[in-house]
């Protein structure tokens, strides 16, 4: 294939018009692909390709679209980022958990004078336990700033840790880790909005940074589900709100 043939191919696949039998002939000649190979790419019978080519059968819009996609892949992308950035995986779990507020309030690192305020707070921050066999409960770096941020809002916040035992852990990669928290279902939309505002305020120069957060949503009866999210900041609020809506529907259907 020479450059002119390559340019013609690019023009065919990038044009909005459906592929004609002349275009198909150009594709076959330029790529050197056989009718059988085109048939395999597009999940058609080779005889169908032959009929398309000779004009005996009109080329369907579906075939045209599929062929353009396949030839585009075969040609390879002309513009891409390099080194190839591995697309950030979205990790999202929304599963029942036994680690509700009741579990955390009886932990030895939670002093008695905090138990009542934690039980009544809208947002309760909980630590990571057993991180790499480190004996103490730790919070991700920046937890203090998040605590301060929420304190200034209309929501009340508490943390399941004494001042003396409070430690932060700074980890390796550039993922923005938010502290794990327990909230009630009622305040969840407000909390999500607050988290979104916090991210844009804390990292104003970063477009759509990767974040990870764990939010446990607790019901009045003590049952709880944990939302584990690892993905882009832009998708966070949308995905988690959809999960919350699902939870609400699930509850209503059971009533």
């Amino acid at each position: 294939m020479n450059h002119e043939q390559y340019d013609s191919l690019r023009e065919i696949i990038e044009c909005d018009n459906p592929i004609s039998n002349t275009d198909l002939a150009i594709i076959l000649k330029a790529t050197g692909l056989s009718q059988a190979e085109i048939a395999a790419m597009t999940d058609r019978d080779p005889s169908t390709i032959s009929k398309y080519r000779t004009g005996l059968n009109p080329i369907s819009q579906l075939f045209s679209k599929l062929l353009k996609q396949e030839i585009g892949k075969w040609l390879g992308s002309s513009i891409e980022t390099y080194p190839p950035k591995t697309p950030r995986k979205l990790i999202f779990d929304f599963l029942p958990t036994e680690f509700n507020l009741g579990y955390w309030l009886i932990q030895p690192f939670v002093p008695d004078d905090i138990v009542e305020s934690a039980a009544n707070a809208d947002v309760v921050l909980v630590p990571w336990e057993g991180f790499k066999d480190y004996r103490r409960a730790v919070f991700p770096v920046g937890t203090m700033e998040f605590f301060q941020f929420v304190e200034k809002s209309e929501l009340s916040i508490e943390a399941c840790i004494s001042d003396k035992e409070y430690t932060e852990i700074a980890l390796h990669s550039d993922e923005k880790r938010l502290p794990s928290m327990i909230v009630t279902f009622v305040v969840l939309p407000l909390v999500l909005s607050l988290v979104g505002n916090y991210i844009s305020q804390r990292w104003p120069l970063e477009k759509n940074p990767p974040i990870s957060v764990s939010i446990t949503v607790q019901e009045v009866d003590g049952s709880a589900r944990t939302l584990e999210y690892k993905g882009s900041a832009d998708d966070f609020e949308r995905i988690v709100l959809n999960a919350a809506a699902f939870l609400q529907e699930d509850k209503e259907s059971k009533q």
């Binding site: 203090m144 001042d163 409070y166 430690t167 932060e168 700074a170 390796h172 990669s173």
Partner: peptide, 29 residues
């Protein structure tokens, strides 16, 4: 190669006071 560091005590660079989750100075990072 990036270190994993547990920050056991944090101080404010302006007033030098120890910062904990509930007891912070008025200075904002």
């Amino acid at each position: 190669f990036s270190p994993e560091i547990v920050e056991e005590e944090l101080k404010c660079s302006i007033c030098g006071s120890v910062q904990t989750i509930r007891k912070k100075c008025a200075h904002e990072v």
